[in-house]
Nucleic acid binder design. Structure first.
Lengths: 196, 196
DNA sequence: CTAGTATGAATGAAAG
DNA sequence: CTTTCATTCATACTAG
């Protein structure tokens, strides 16, 4: 809003795009690999990375394309917000459904809102994704600077998928949506996580 | 906190919107004219108007649409906060850029936003606006109750633009971002301004 | 091409 | 003041 004339300077102006075609975008369009990383971090429990972590994440993402701290910040902010909203919506739907069950035997068929998978191929919102069986985290390695390190100059999705084998899209059973702080270890790095 | 927001029955409501279409909004949406005024005040140096000034500003803004003191208060609070953040981000980017200059002869092209490959600045707006040539203030008239007075019942942007000729969107060269108080004269009215 | 949706970005409001 | 939340706007992408 605010009748902004964002055209002029909002140009992400990627000086040198060595990635795929870059027809000068007006806003950041995360690469599939970047989304994978972001999702994995988010689902690992770090839903609200502090400033310094944001910087690290950005640097990680930069292996796959231009990103700014702001982009990362916005991504997590939006991710949290929409995750929360979906959760709320589901709750509301459930409530309605329970009421309706009395009149129309719809049966508690909790559908998966948003089935249209994004470019990566996994459910972007993963609200009805299969539960994570166990710990669901990236714990167990070093910091993810190395976790996502690759052989050389041209990292590919393959490498990531290897490292992301523990990726767990369990939205409804996620653990860190509240406040209060618990410390979890992400790749051996103690990280403060908001909790209820 | 800050009981600025208290009742006053100035609910962000919008019971009677005589302005343009008002599809029942849940929050205040400042009109372009109002933004102009707010920006001009902010850029004139009054980045943190005291309570009484806030009231005056609100009354001024009301010529163009429903506003509450709380709205004005929040606006300045957010403006200060985000102005700061942008500043910080720019500084960080500059630092990075300077470092990179040593290895990759990017040539310290300090453009509006950071120009190097990526890490888009946090400030898509107004950061690289043209500098204010001179004093950049509204000083010189009466109080702005009259400064922004108009012919009659239907004030237009025209009138404002006349009075706002000194509007100065210079983010980086702004003068009052700190605390401590100095008194400046805005339109002949002594006003307390936080300063460093 | 248009309509609808997913989502990056912006910002008013509020919490901490 | 800083950070977060909720809402809204703008745009990339998609289906038809």
């Amino acid at each position: 809003m605010e009748d902004h004339v964002r055209d002029t300077s909002s140009q992400p102006n990627h000086g040198s795009e060595t990635e795929r075609n870059e027809p000068v975008r007006s806003r950041w369009t995360p690469k599939p690999e970047q989304i994978l990383i972001l999702e994995s971090i988010f689902n690992s429990g770090m839903v609200n990375p502090p400033k310094n972590e944001t910087v690290r994440i950005r640097k990680l993402l930069e292996k796959f394309g231009s990103v700014s701290d702001a982009n990362v910040f916005y991504w997590f902010q939006n991710r949290r917000s929409r995750s929360r909203r979906r959760q709320r919506q589901i709750q509301a739907d459930l409530a309605v459904e329970q009421q309706q069950t009395q009149t129309s035997s719809t049966g508690g068929a909790i559908q998966c809102e948003n089935t249209t998978s994004n470019s990566v191929g996994f459910a972007p919102n993963s609200v009805c994704s299969p539960m994570c069986s166990a710990s669901c985290s990236l714990v167990g390695n070093e910091n993810y600077d190395n976790l996502f390190s690759f052989s050389g100059g041209h990292p590919g999705l393959q490498d990531i998928e290897q490292n992301l084998s523990s990726f767990c899209p369990a939205e409804t059973s996620n653990l860190q949506h509240q406040s209060g702080l618990i410390t979890v270890f992400i790749n051996g790095v103690p990280t403060e996580i908001p909790r209820g």
